[in-house]
Write a protein that binds this DNA or RNA. Structure first.
Lengths: 152, 152
DNA sequence: CTAATTCCTCAAGCAAACTTGAGGTCAAGC
DNA sequence: GCTTGACCTCAAGTTTGCTTGAGGAATTAG
């Protein structure tokens, strides 16, 4: 098929529809420096279609519990309106690979634990792989301080 | 080894220390109906050691982005101060297995995508598996919502 | 007996990630 | 030529998941 009528620059409303988020969310992301736009003479936002990719990444990251602050950090390594090079990805990706793998491991441990516990009734924390504070769980922060940066 | 000096019922402070959360967090979880305690004559909370397991589950779940409301729902299927039976776990686990697997898949897609993008520079949304509207992402046309949260 | 520690309740505060609302501009369709 | 709708800004409100603080009681160490 021929190239469809997919314009390269989108209004905020189009972006919102395509990205599946609210317009206000895009405003917010922009204010937070996560995405970028330029303005029409009428002061309306225009987004490069590539920004959709960024929104996608942001949404997935949030879903898996990565705070915007960290998403921004990672995205700041990527050019926002230009083509992303292999080097760009490599750099940004390296930071996240590790993070994502950890989360996957955590999830798998939780899922696996549920399987495991069906048959064993292991209720002591000492031998429960799910709750091993010397491992990834505690490494993420032994406090409840998910919203604070004070943990190191 | 002989049974260590691990009492079966813990004070809120002990729980907090062992679970790696703040005392206030335990108060909060209790107020929210996620964990249970009884009181000493002095009105101090006492927790069955098994409650630690619950806290562990709660923490892991939160880390991977599952809201407390859903954790409570799942935990409500488990007896709080008694031994958990295979049937209990099976029931509770079944609900989460699916949810967890989905999240894992999402993460893996993101992680995998980053690998992929390092070498290919695929920046068009049309052929990006992460943001593929023909895939799970935008099967609905205008809304990419289902990709993010619509699980049904 | 006193001091430190741990606990209690309840209300208020806070951070993240948005949403809602008020008040206004701009281009287009009828 | 006016109304409709998409857009703008900026401030305030909302939800979730806690934390902090005030004010007070009971337990434990010396």
């Amino acid at each position: 098929m021929a190239t469809k009528a997919v314009p390269n620059d989108l209004s905020v409303g189009e972006m919102a529809k395509r990205a599946g988020v609210a317009v206000s969310t895009l405003h917010y992301y922009e204010a937070e420096g996560l995405i970028e736009s330029w303005r029409t003479p009428a002061n309306h936002r225009r987004y490069d279609r590539r920004q959709l990719r960024r929104v996608a990444i942001i949404r997935v990251a949030l879903q898996v519990g990565i705070p915007l602050r960290e998403v921004r950090e990672m995205l700041s390594g990527l050019p926002s309106g230009r083509a992303v090079t292999a080097a760009d990805w490599a750099k940004a990706g390296a930071i996240w690979q590790d993070r994502l793998r950890r989360r996957i491991a955590l999830l798998e441990r939780l899922a696996g634990q549920m399987d495991h516990c069906i048959g064993c009734g292991c209720l002591s924390l000492e031998n429960c792989p799910l709750y091993n504070r010397n491992d990834a769980l505690g490494a993420e922060g032994p406090g409840a301080r998910r919203w604070e940066e004070a943990q190191d």
